[in-house]
Write a protein that binds this DNA or RNA. Structure first.
Length: 465
RNA sequence: GGCGUCGUCGCCAAGUGGUAAGGCAAGGGUCUGCAAAACCCUUAUUCGCGGGUUCGAAUCUCGCCGACGCCUCCA
């Protein structure tokens, strides 16, 4: 039985879907005006693993991740670059999609965009006004009336009275209540805008997600995800809008990932301490970033630095060792030992599922993977043939896939293989003659070129580092 | 100040009332000409501190200390 921590109730709850075997899941995507950073990667990876696991458990997952392509920051950046805002956001949408692909994140079922949801957003706002939950101000803005929603503050655990102290009203805003938030913003001169009953303008941030949710998944969804920095005000406001509009419970489960910590601080655009996904992937395999995330708790802050990345890289290397081939000359395992290997793999699988069922305990799941590796490597050391390793490796691969780990040995171009094999062969001859200095020279020089040599009783093998 | 998360081996980290998973690092060993890789063994009587509940607590409860996040755009 899958159990999930629900931010809304602050409890671990049994997971039950609205419709049998179908999970409707919405995850807040990014505002596309710049390169996505490793913090975005963490969030994307967390929800990718959740999605993969739900599918592994037999659910069909409708996975929606939006792009915010209309926003102040986009408009400002476009102005700076002298570019059309929608052209700019289109570039970064394509860019982010590539980043996600490079991180081995499965594509969403759909990626709605604000700019393509405007009519529904307007309709949504009109509905809220009709029901008395929103009002058009004199300046052309439309605001949500927070006092009209008795439940306002329920996700973040805040009371309206407590919130007022910190709230501030920007100059030019015409709110009835300081916490009222914009559903529609009137356009400034020369800004991108759409025609609406309230004049030219564009949607506020929060209404976009409510509208795209409705468009893609309907009135009620199973899981809403995002970073925990979105709990307030973004998700709070989404709940207010959606539930006031439809009169029904919006999302059953709210899942929030913790923030990536860079040098002890949260990484964010406003702090400027950013490492882009592209920078990271130019130095590390996608599996390394994924392992970093998997080895922690998705809800907790995650330390991102060279040390934690190195540790993650070693974990990845170790897991890869489980897929190494058996030597051709392997003499084979006794039947009991071979079946013990299969039981070990199946037991690891059971532990894996148990861990993942417990609020996606990926660290526990990774530990189960290490169990598999150990069993496989021990069997190989004891002389298991390729055929005997196979069943355990198949299970191991299945579990690695659920976590989205590729665990591929690095491939060279292929062109060099013949020459490397030749050098290995020559080295073999030299070793027969006990010319160790020459043999070690070849090994060292190949190592410098990224080729790792491994001698064993059964001959010499090599791989790219 | 308000809301929330969290403090477990040198480091990362699981554990959700029944007597401390896993990885890295470290030490010893097997294999090897020597390495590397892999394998085997060792490494927390103890879970921030102090009370309480219980036959029994890292796990529940109270207090304290400390870290972090949100309360303004943010994954």
């Amino acid at each position: 039985m899958l159990k999930i921590y629900n931010t809304l109730t602050r409890k671990i709850e049994e997971f039950q879907t609205l419709e049998p075997n179908l999970v409707k899941m919405y995850v807040c995507g990014v505002t596309v005006y710049n390169d996505a950073h490793v913090g975005h990667a963490m969030s994307a990876l967390v929800f990718d693993v959740i999605r993969r696991y739900l599918e592994y458990r037999g659910y069909t997952v409708k996975y929606v991740m939006n792009y915010t392509d209309v926003d102040d920051k986009i408009i400002n950046r476009a102005k700076q670059l002298g570019e059309d805002p929608l052209a700019l956001s289109k570039r970064y949408i394509e860019d982010y999609a590539r980043d996600l692909q490079n991180l081995n994140v499965l594509p969403a079922t759909s990626n709605p965009q604000v700019s393509k949801t405007i009519p529904l957003i307007i309709q949504f706002i009109e509905g809220l006004i009709q029901k008395g939950h929103a009002y058009a101000a004199s300046n052309g803005d439309v605001y949500f009336r927070v006092t009209s929603d008795d439940d306002y503050g329920r996700l973040s655990g805040r009371k309206l009275d407590d919130m007022q102290a910190g709230a501030r009203i920007e100059i030019g805003e015409a709110k009835d209540h300081p916490m009222d938030f914009a559903l529609w913003k009137s356009a400034k001169e020369g800004e991108i805008s759409w025609e609406s009953p309230w004049g030219h303008g564009r949607p506020g941030w929060h209404i976009e997600c409510s509208a795209m949710n409705l468009a893609e998944l309907g009135e009620q969804i199973d899981i809403h995800g995002g970073g925990n920095d979105l709990i307030f005000p973004h998700h709070e406001n989404e709940i207010a809008q959606s539930e006031c509009y439809t009169g029904r419970e919006f999302s059953r489960y709210w899942i929030h990932n913790g923030m990536l910590q860079l040098g002890g601080e949260k990484m964010s655009k406003s702090l400027g301490n950013i490492i882009s996904i592209k920078e990271l992937l130019s130095q590390r395999e996608a599996d390394v970033m994924r392992m970093l995330v998997l080895n922690g708790t998705y809800r907790a802050p995650l330390m991102f630095n060279d040390e934690t990345l190195d540790a993650a890289q070693k974990n990845v290397e170790r897991l890869k060792s489980g897929f190494r081939a058996a030597p051709l000359s392997a003499k084979g395992l006794a039947p009991e030992a071979a079946s013990a290997l299969v039981s070990a793999a199946e037991s690891a699988k059971a532990n894996f599922i148990e861990a993942m069922d417990n609020d996606f305990n990926t660290a526990g799941a990774v530990a189960a993977l290490f169990e598999s590796v150990k069993a496989i490597n021990t069997a190989r050391d004891n002389g298991a043939t390729a055929a005997q390793l196979k069943p355990a490796q198949v299970i191991f691969r299945e579990l690695a896939n659920v976590l989205g780990l590729k665990l591929e040995e690095k491939q060279g171009s292929g062109d060099a293989d013949a020459f490397i094999n030749l050098l290995i062969e020559v080295r073999g001859e030299v070793r027969k003659q006990k010319l160790w200095a020459t043999s070690d020279l070849i090994r060292d020089r190949l190592n410098e070129l990224g080729v790792a040599i491994e001698d064993s009783k059964d001959g010499t093998t090599w791989k790219w580092n």
